[in-house]
Design a protein around this nucleic acid. Structure first.
Lengths: 349, 349
DNA sequence: CTGAAAGCGCTAACAA
DNA sequence: TTGTTAGCGCTTTCAG
C-alpha cells in the first residue's frame, strides 16, 4: 500500500485516459461518456483514490467547508446546537468544521483569523453570537457568507436567525401564573429596568424583558428582589446564586423562570440542597429545551425552541448567500418558533 | 476592502520584498533579518493577510489538522470528550476537525474516505472506537498517525488509549457491596457468561466482565436476572428497560451498577417513575464521570475516568507518530486512571 | 540575507 | 467525448 496518496494521474494512467477525464468523471461533470465514467470510478475506488481537498480548494476557491462556531462543546445547549447544525450542513452537501471559543472574544478572533482557518478555507460561517458584536464578526468574516444564531442587534450587519426570546419568556411567566404562582422569581444575569432594555440587546436581556412585561401585565411584582442574579448561565452559577440567597433567608418564590435550562437545572439542584421541593414548593420552568431536561427528577418544563427550524433557516440563508457570492444581499433576521414543553417541574399536586 | 484575500505577493509588493521573503518571515523560518521580518509582519497584519491553508498544505503535505471522530455530539460523554480532546489538540498547536458518525459504520467510512476529508487534509486522526474494528480503521486511515480511544482489541493494529473498564467496574461493584448492597443489578447491553468474554472485547463487555468478577469474588449472585439488558447505552434505553422490568414485577435490587452514566441517569429517572427512591431503596453508581452527573437529584456516584490524562496520552502518542512519519512504530495500548466519585446516589441514610 | 524557478494536485478554458 | 495548457498560492531548492 503506497504511503503517499494516489493522485488523479495515477488513476488516469491506470485507466488509460487523461487526468482531466478522471477529474470530470469523479465530479460527475459533463463531457465524459457513461462508459468511461464507470470504468474510471471503478478504478479510482479500486486503488483507493481520494481527492485532495487542498488542491481542489486552491484551484476552485471553494472547499465545501462550513465553519460552525460556538462557545463551548460540553454544555447541553451547545452540544445540541452543534449536533443539529452539523447534521444540517452535512445534509446540504457541505462539510461542517466546528470550533469552540471558550467564551474568549480574543480566542474567537484568533480562531477566525488565525493562520489556520482564516476565512480562506471555509465557504461560509455559522456562529452562535454570544459575546460577539455583529460588527466585529463582519469584519472578521470579510463578507463571506455567514449567519449568526441568536444575535439580537437591532440593525444586523450579518443575517441571523434568532430565538423567540421575548415571546418565549412571556409565555413562561404567564404559564407559571396560570399554574397559580404569585411570587415569581427570575434567574438571569441581573435585574434590569426599563431603560436597560433600550440598548445593545442580547438574548438574556430580551428574555428578561419578556418576563418583566409578563409580570407587569399580570399585576405581579418586578423589582430587584424578583431576580436572582447569576454570573453566568451555567448550572454551577445558578447553584451558587441560589445557595447564596438561601443563606440570607427564605427563598421567597413559588415559581421560578430560569432564563435557560442549565440555570433551571442548577436551580432545582440547589433548591434540593435547601430542602425545597420542586414542584411542590416552587415550580420551575426553563428555556431552550435541551435533551437532558427530560431525564431529571423532576423532569424540566421548558420553552423548547424549534432547533430543526433553526437549522433549516440557517442553511437557507447561508445557501442564498453562497449562490449570490457575487454581491451584497441585505442582512435578514428571522425568528424561530417554540413550544411550551410541560413536564414535572411545574406540575400541580 | 478587497473581497479576495490578500496573498503573499500582495504583502511582498507592499513591503518591497519578494514573496519568498514574506513567506519565510511569516513562518519564522531562518534566512530573514530581524528588521525585514518585523516590517513584513507589520505590513501583513495591516493588510489583513492570512495564509492560505490549501496552498500551504498542498505544497508541504501538512495541514496542521487533526481529525476527531466520535459517534454523536449531543451525548454527555461525547460532548465532554470532544471538549477535552479539542482543547488538547489546540494546546499542541494543531487544529481540531470534528466529525460525528451517528453510529453508522457506513457513515464513518464515508466520513473518513469521502471526497472531502479523506485522509488527505488531516495530519492525524483521533477516534472513539465504538463499533469500529481497529482493522477497518487502519485500512481507512492508511497508516497516517492515528490513536483510538477505548478500542479494546487484544492485538491492536493502531495505538489506543483505553478506559479502566474492568478495574473500574470491579471497583463500582465492590463499592456497592461495601455500602451494604446484597442484591446488585447491572445495566448493560446483555447478560454475558464466561465464554462470552473470550472474543472481541468491547468497553461494555469489559465492564460487564469486571462487574461479574467482583460479584463472584464477593459471593454474590451473577446470573441472567442480574442484568437489566438495554438496547443501547443512552438514557432512553435505560428508561425503557427499567420500565419494562418494573412492569413484570418488583425491581429486585438494592444496588445498581450502570455501565455508563447515561444509563445510570436513565435508570434513576425510571426508578422515580416507579416510586423507587435512590439511594434509599436502591443505590446507583455509574461510569464515566460526565458533567451532568453532579447536577442531578440525587447527584450521581460514578467511576470518573481521568479525561485529562486521556487527552495527554492521546496527544503524546499522536505526536510520536507524526514525528516518526517515516515508518511503523508498533501500536501501543495505554490505560488511563479513574477515581470513584462519591455522591448522593449511593449515600446511606 | 534575499530572490528566482519549479511544482505540489487539481480544474477552467480551450483545442482536438 | 477527450486531452492539453496554464495557474491557483504557497514553499523547497538553489543561485545571487
Amino acid at each position: 500500500m503506497k504511503r503517499s496518496a494516489a493522485t488523479l494521474k495515477d488513476v488516469a494512467s491506470a485507466a488509460g485516459v487523461s487526468a482531466m477525464t478522471v477529474s470530470k468523471a469523479l465530479r460527475n461533470a459533463p463531457g465524459v461518456s457513461d462508459k468511461t465514467r464507470e470504468r474510471v470510478l471503478a478504478i479510482a475506488q479500486n486503488i483507493g483514490y481520494e481527492t485532495n481537498v487542498s488542491a481542489s480548494a486552491l484551484k476552485t476557491g471553494r472547499s465545501g467547508i462550513i465553519q460552525i462556531i460556538v462557545n463551548e462543546y460540553d454544555i447541553p445547549f451547545y452540544s445540541k446546537l452543534i449536533d443539529v447544525m452539523s447534521s444540517a450542513v452535512v445534509a446540504n452537501g457541505y462539510t461542517p468544521f466546528l470550533q469552540q471559543t471558550k467564551y474568549s472574544s480574543a480566542a474567537l478572533q484568533s480562531t477566525l483569523s488565525s493562520s489556520l482557518f482564516s476565512g480562506v478555507l471555509s465557504d461560509g460561517v455559522i456562529a452562535h453570537a454570544s459575546g460577539l458584536s455583529g460588527d466585529l464578526f463582519e469584519k472578521i468574516v470579510h463578507g463571506k457568507p455567514a449567519v449568526l444564531i441568536d444575535s439580537c442587534e437591532e440593525q444586523p450587519v450579518v443575517s441571523s436567525v434568532v430565538f423567540p426570546n421575548e415571546e418565549g419568556a412571556r409565555a413562561a411567566v404567564q404559564y407559571l401564573a396560570e399554574r397559580g404562582c404569585r411570587n415569581i422569581g427570575l434567574i438571569g444575569p441581573s435585574y434590569l429596568e426599563k431603560k436597560d432594555f433600550l440598548h445593545s440587546p442580547s438574548p438574556m436581556k430580551l428574555r428578561m424583558r419578556g418576563a418583566r412585561a409578563a409580570l407587569l401585565d399580570l399585576g405581579l411584582p418586578y423589582d430587584e428582589s424578583t431576580v436572582i442574579a447569576v454570573e453566568g448561565m451555567s448550572e454551577e452559577h445558578a447553584i451558587d446564586s441560589v445557595h447564596e440567597l438561601a443563606k440570607s433567608g427564605r427563598i421567597p418564590f413559588d415559581g421560578l423562570f430560569c432564563l435557560n435550562d442549565s440555570a433551571a437545572i442548577g436551580a432545582i439542584r440547589a433548591l434540593a440542597d435547601c430542602g425545597i421541593r420542586v414542584p411542590d414548593d416552587v415550580k420551575v420552568i426553563g428555556f431552550d429545551g435541551v435533551r437532558e431536561g427530560g431525564f431529571h427528577v423532576p423532569s424540566l418544563t421548558t420553552i423548547s425552541v424549534d432547533m430543526q427550524q433553526l437549522a433549516r433557516l440557517v442553511m437557507l440563508s447561508l445557501k442564498q448567500q453562497i449562490d449570490h457570492e457575487g454581491e451584497p444581499l441585505t442582512a435578514t433576521k428571522t425568528t424561530i418558533g417554540f413550544t411550551l414543553l410541560e413536564r414535572e417541574s411545574t406540575q400541580s399536586r
